[in-house]
Amino acid sequence: MAVVAQVIDLVKNYQMESVTVPALRGVTLAFERGDFIALMGPSGSGKSTLLNILGCLDRPTAGTYILAGRDVSQLSDDALSEVRGRYIGFIFQSYNLIPQYTVVENIEVPLLYQGRLNRQTRRRCIELACLVGLGDRLDHRPTQLSGGQQQRVAIARALVNDPEIILADEPTGNLDSKTSDEIMQLLCALNDAGRTIIMVTHENDIAAWARRVVRLRDGRVEADYRMDRAA
C-alpha cells in the first residue's frame, strides 16, 4: 500500500527555561493510505506532540516528516497553514466548532481559507452535513446541538477539503459510550471508504476499532502491531 505520511527519526524537545524536556526521542513511522491507526500510550508519552507535528501545527526539533511525498518538516508558518488546509482534517476531543457559525458555515471554514468557497462547494458542505446525519440541522448553531452532533459536524468539516489524513485527538473523550460507538462507526465507515485516520486514544475499546496500534512510551515507539477490527 502507498505511504501517505512518514516520519523519520523525529525528535521534539521543549525548552522550559533552562531545562530541555524531550517529548519525542526519535520516532520513525510510516502511515499507509486507507489505514486506521490508533496512537496509544500513557500520559506524557508524546502522543499529542506527535499528532501536532503530523498535523503541521508544530515543527520537529529534528528529523523528517514527509506528507504526500513532500518534506514538510521545516516549512514556513504560511506554508504550514497551506498544508493544513489542503492535506489535513482535524477532529478534536472538544469538537472545536466556531460558536457563532451555523453547521454549514462551520463545515465551510477550511474551504474559506483556501479561497474555494462558491455555490458548488457550498452544496458539497450540505451533502457532507447530510452524510454525517445532520441534514435537518443545517442552520443550527453548535450550542443547539448535542455533543455527538457537534462531533459529527467536526467530522464533516474534517472531510470537506478531501484530506490526505484525518487526525483525531481522543474524538470520543467527551462522549458517553453509546454516542462514542456511533462516532466510531462513522469513522470506520469513512475508513472503509478509503480515508486514512490517525487517532489518539487511551481507551482500549476505542483503539479496538482501528486496524493498527502504535504505542508510545517516553517519546519512543514501544509497540506497533496490526489487528483485526472488532465487531
Binding site: R84, G85, F90, V109, Y113
Partner: peptide, 13 residues
C-alpha cells in the same frame, strides 16, 4: 480558542 481552530483549519496569520 476560535483563533486556534481557524489556524488549524488552514488560516494564515
Amino acid at each position: 480558542r476560535e483563533i486556534g481552530i481557524r489556524r488549524a483549519l488552514g488560516a494564515k496569520r
